[in-house]
């Protein structure tokens, strides 16, 4: 899903690949890119399930406005991953509801 080359933008700047953990499973992304981009590149669509009806939500606005993309990051719920830069070793978890019961 990554655009390593593009007819107008040219080749992508090489990034540093780092490991992070999604629901406990190791995945890779590029350091400093929004977490949402790393998830998209890894084919992850669901970021959270809503509180009442347990409906899935994913990336929607990609610019930090809609709060659809929030996840539990390093134990903190309700983090907008579309505007959160990826750091090595980050722990990201699918959020259920408002993130109750998060350790």
């Amino acid at each position: 899903m990554r655009l390593t080359n593009h007819p107008i933008l040219g080749p992508a700047a090489p990034g540093r690949e780092v490991v992070f953990f999604l629901d406990g499973v190791a995945a890779t992304g590029l350091e400093g890119e929004p977490l949402a981009a790393a998830l998209k590149a890894a084919g992850v669509a669901v970021h959270r399930y809503t509180k009442k009806h347990r409906r899935p939500r994913g990336l929607f606005c990609a610019v930090g406005r809609c709060t659809d993309c929030v996840m539990v990051v390093n134990g903190r719920p309700n983090v907008r991953v579309c505007v959160t830069p990826l750091e090595e070793g980050m722990r990201v978890a699918t959020q259920y509801g408002a993130g109750e019961g998060v350790k």
């Binding site: 899903m1 990554r2 655009l3 390593t4 593009h6 933008l9 992508a12 890119e33 929004p34 949402a36 981009a37 998209k40 590149a41 990336l59 929607f60 606005c61 990609a62 610019v63």
Partner: peptide, 11 residues
């Protein structure tokens, strides 16, 4: 959002 993904984040 699609533009942001493609052109800023290259995904």
């Amino acid at each position: 959002a699609a533009q942001t993904l493609m052109h800023l984040h290259r995904v």
